[in-house]
Design a protein around this nucleic acid. Structure first.
Lengths: 110, 110
DNA sequence: TGCGTATATTCCTAGATAGTTGAATAGCGG
DNA sequence: CCGCTATTCAACTATCTAGGAATATACGCA
């Protein structure tokens, strides 16, 4: 692990921020099965095309997706498989967190 | 990996968002070595006490840290070691991304 | 009780960002 | 060249959040 300087903290947080958005996670999830165009992604996630395009820019800037232009359409694909490992790690914690929230809902003065 | 429903996408993004903040990454980094109080953390990261307290709430809500009250001081510690695996994965991508950015800065019409 | 300390909470402001809309760009077919 | 399509870009609004200041709460001590 990098010794956390201010600069590297910024870089790391930038990458986390790119994943801190449900829409972008859905885009990545749809791209798991293979390449998709912007329009196809917009249909699948039920969002506007411009919106999807901007989200894809963010993922591209962080290197999570790559793109390939063919004629008028742009095909996006996952570039960094580590993103799925990241999600798996986070998903592992989610069930724990749900359990913990249920604990918090209980009266605690027992 | 969880089949990504809208609800789970929200949960996952919430967890990523908790890490998408340099200050919170620095807090977690300082907590690697062991328990620290809010005041100690505020000194180390050079931030206000209220600010640090609020960031710790976010990390606590997402289950990344635990806390223990002793008198008037609250001691925080890392609860989920997976957070460091997450950072490692992200750090691994950062050097790749830096290389990629250097590529982008080059004239590409070769 | 009253004071000092440590933490949490509330209010406020400035900056960031998601989403929409409309325009601009680029390729394809006539 | 002209329309058509897919994508990107720019402007705008609404929402969110980091940070600071002030306040509230809780604890220890005399």
């Amino acid at each position: 692990m990098i010794e956390l300087t201010d600069a590297s903290a910024d870089l790391i947080s930038d990458r986390f921020r790119a994943l801190a958005e449900p829409m972008r996670l859905r885009l990545l999830h749809n791209l798991r099965k293979g390449e998709l165009s912007v329009g196809e992604l917009a249909e699948r996630v039920g969002a506007g095309q411009a919106n999807v395009s901007k989200h894809l820019q963010v993922l591209f800037q962080q290197g999570f997706v790559e793109r390939r232009k063919a004629g008028t359409t742009t095909w996006y694909r996952v570039a960094d498989p580590a993103v799925f490992e990241l999600c798996s790690l986070v998903c592992g914690g989610i069930e724990d967190e749900l359990d913990r929230r249920r604990q918090l809902l209980r009266p605690r003065r027992g």
